[in-house]
Amino acid sequence: MILSEITMPEFEKGLKRTRTVLIPFGVVEQHGDHLPLGTDTMQAEDVCLKLAQRRAVFVAPPIHYGVCRSTADHPGTISISTETLKALTVDIVSDLYRNGLRCFVLISGHAGGTHNATLLDAGEVLLKKLPEAQIAVVTEYDLAVGEGGDIIETSGDAHAGEIETSRILHARPHLVKGRGRAEVPTFPQAILVRDKRRYWPGGVHGDPTKASADKGRRIEALVVDALERLVLKLEQARD
C-alpha cells in the first residue's frame, strides 16, 4: 500500500491488515558521470515497492535528501545537516505512529556513515518516545553486499560501481549514460580534507564496467528477500 496513492478509507482499511511501514531514505548525490543523482533513493524505493507487491505493508514516500560528506564537493550533490535529517526522521515516524503504525523499517539507499549514524540516533530517540514502536534501521547497500556476494566481481565495490550501475541498468536503463570508469578514492587516512574532489575526481568507488542488467535483477531480488525476512523478524520482535 503506497501511502501517497491510497485514500483515507483505504488507509484505515489497511491498518486492519498491517501496522508495518517501510520508509525509504535516499540522497541527491553525484554517482559518477553515468548514473543519476537520485540513484540511492531509487534503489531504496524500488525494493520497498517490490516487497509491497508480496505482502501487506505500507510504503511511505521516499525522503530524497540526506547527509553527504565525502561527495560534498562534487557537482549535483545536495546535502542537509545531521540535525535536519534527525529531526525530520523523528517527526515523520512520530506522526506515522500517531496514525496507528507500530513497526517501522528505515531503509537507506545511501551508505554514508554519517547519514546512517544519524538515522540510528533518530531511531534511539524514537524507541524512548514511542512505547509500542518496533524500529529497524538498515542500508540497502549492506543488504545488496551481504546477499549478492557471489554475484559481485569487484572487491570493495561501494559507490556508482558494479552494484549500483547494475541496479540502475536493470530498473531504469534509460537513465544510465554510458558505463563509467573504475576508480577508488584516495582520501588520506584519518585526515579531513577540504577539497574532497581532489582525492576522488570521478566520484566512483568500484568498477562499473563489470555491471550488467542481469546482475542488477538478481541483486535486487535478493535484497527484497532479505528485506522481507527483516520485516517478519521485526513484526515478531518484543522487547
Rank of each mutant, 00 (worst) to 15 (best):
R172N: 12
L169S: 13
A60Y: 13
D150E: 14
R181F: 05
R55C: 09
I107S: 09
V27Q: 00
I78C: 04
C48W: 12
K16R: 14
W200D: 14
E124K: 14
A182M: 11
E153H: 10
A160D: 03
G161V: 11
E124S: 14
K210E: 11
L227E: 10
R194G: 09
A52H: 11
L130H: 08
E124V: 15
R55S: 11
I151N: 03
G113M: 06
E29P: 02
G112A: 00
E220V: 15
Q189K: 14
H174A: 15
V138K: 12
V184N: 08
A72L: 11
V145G: 00
A111Y: 14
G14Q: 05
I152G: 06
R218Y: 13
Y65C: 02
V193G: 05
A44H: 01
H74A: 01
I23T: 09
A133L: 05
G76S: 05
A226S: 15
G26A: 12
H115Q: 06
K196N: 02
G109P: 11
R69M: 04
G26C: 09
R167L: 15
L37F: 03
S4L: 05
V59K: 01
K196F: 01
A158G: 00
S212W: 08
I152T: 06
I63E: 05
Y97S: 02
P24L: 05
R167A: 14
K129V: 04
Q236F: 03
G203K: 07
